[in-house]
Amino acid sequence: MDISTIIAGLLTLIIFSFLYKDNPFYKMAESLLIGVSIGYVLVITWSNTLMDMLFEPLFSNAELSLIIPLFLGLFMLGRFSDKTVALSRIPIAVMIGSGAGIAIPTMLYNRTIKQLTASVMPIFTESGGLNISGIVVIVGLLSTLAYFYFSREHKGKFGAFAKLGTYFLMIFFGTTFGYTVMSRMSTFIGRMEFLLSDFLKITQ
């Protein structure tokens, strides 16, 4: 067995040991994971962002417009001193402002308009029969929206309607949990397969 598999296998076992209790081996592995992953992000960000997107085009191709993000980035480092800390608020303003600007139409479209228009369907079918699913959708949507209505206390008839909304919410949470169990288990199964076949060679 090669050294890579031994190390990966041991580290896998050590991380699992956290389930029993916090222990020195786990503490060591945890600290190593944090350290190595920070180091990894540092290197990847340096090569993919700073070199490829900033320094190369700026200094080799003389794309002068890149001076703007260069300075925005440098301003961020102003946080190292109390005197220059105000400079860092400019790049933060750029991020927060542009993020908010793009969020308005995209959130409105993807989260609100699209979801809303997909809910509309006739409550009677052409043959005159009741469209139960359609009614469930409409009642569910309206009552859940009533739950999210903050201007009124949940009392009386309105309160009862909003409470109906919470039942729909609970159906959603239960359903999601049920469906997500699978994806949570599959990573575990993957790790066990690695441990049993690659590391311990018990199964093939």
């Binding site: 979801q115 997909a118 359903t175 997500t180």
Partner: peptide, 14 residues
Amino acid sequence: MVTTYDPYLASHQM
């Protein structure tokens, strides 16, 4: 993760 995408599927974004 399935239910994450359901509404997008139903609203024909996917």
